[in-house]
């Protein structure tokens, strides 16, 4: 029996193992047309900063910051708003947008008949959400600098910090999306993100809460995000920072793992 298979083999090097960036290429094609939508993600935290930071900042001149150092209220609330926008932006991207492509447009079913894999899709979509988040964070950081809310050079670390928050929430958001059956389930998303935004020391420090409640707040991932960005923004570091980073990192990795596994199960039956 002779072998006469086509000789046109894929040249070496073209079978790149990492293909997640193809998803970014796809999303770039989509978003270059709807770039105005992206702007809204920038304005939301800025509006919050203007209204709450400046407004309430007039009434509350100083609050105890990290390590108990008293700081200006606007400087206290700004990094937390950055954290919240990193959470909201990536959650929005990895829940609504992904669900639409997954369940309605069947976009991924088509992509999986190409050399792309479900892991490429999971990593690609989470990564895209982070790229978007990084753009927002950078813009927000510029506003913070312009308003004189950053006192330390360390504050530039708020940008990668916000990306880490995006990773934690985006991964978990994508994992959650794989469990959703209909649009109704998305009400649960805001049911989770809204209280996180309000209670995770976004607007006031942890010690405002009675000691019995405080451990509960510490369970909130956004609390860790807020505290991490505050520490970066003010350049005040202590050992708790490592804990915040580790919490978010582990959360993101678990989310990404679950999301990738679940996507594979949903798409390859």
């Amino acid at each position: 029996m002779s072998v006469s298979l086509p000789t046109r083999l894929t040249p070496p090097g073209r079978m790149t193992p990492f293909r997640a960036h193809r998803i970014w290429e796809r999303n770039y094609l989509v978003y270059r047309r709807v770039w105005k939508v992206i702007l809204t993600g920038f304005f939301e935290p800025v509006f919050y900063l203007f209204s709450i930071g400046i407004g309430i900042g007039e009434l509350v001149p100083e609050v105890p910051g990290p390590g108990g150092v008293p700081i200006d209220y606007t400087a206290f609330v700004a990094p937390a708003l950055m954290a919240a926008s990193a959470m909201n932006g990536t959650v929005l991207e990895t829940t609504f947008n992904i669900f639409f492509r997954l369940k309605f447009e069947k976009t991924y079913d088509g992509i999986l008949t190409t050399p792309m894999s479900s892991r490429d899709i999971a990593i690609g979509e989470i990564g895209w959400a982070l790229v978007r988040g990084a753009l927002y964070s950078t813009a927000f950081f510029v506003v913070m600098v312009a308003m004189g809310l950053t006192v330390s050079w360390w504050s530039v670390l708020t940008i990668p910090g916000a990306v880490l928050i995006g990773f934690a929430f985006g991964s978990v958001g994508l994992a959650a999306t794989t469990f959703m059956r209909s649009w109704q389930d998305f009400d649960l998303v805001s049911l989770v993100t809204m209280p996180l935004f309000l209670f995770s020391t976004t607007f006031y420090p942890l010690d405002v809460y009675p000691p019995a409640i405080q451990p509960l707040i510490r369970l909130s991932p956004l609390y860790h995000g807020n505290e991490m960005l505050r520490a970066f923004s003010l350049g005040i570091f202590d050992w708790t920072l490592a804990g915040h980073i580790a919490f978010l990192l582990v959360m993101g990795l678990i989310g990404a793992f679950v999301a990738s596994r679940r996507l594979d199960g949903l798409l390859r039956k």
Binding site: R26, L29, V30, R101, E105, K106, T107, D109, G110, T113
Partner: peptide, 14 residues
């Protein structure tokens, strides 16, 4: 491979 699935799953965002 080139695959034409039973239901069109064209990328509607493109």
């Amino acid at each position: 491979l080139g695959v034409v699935p039973q239901e069109d799953n064209l990328d509607m965002e493109l």
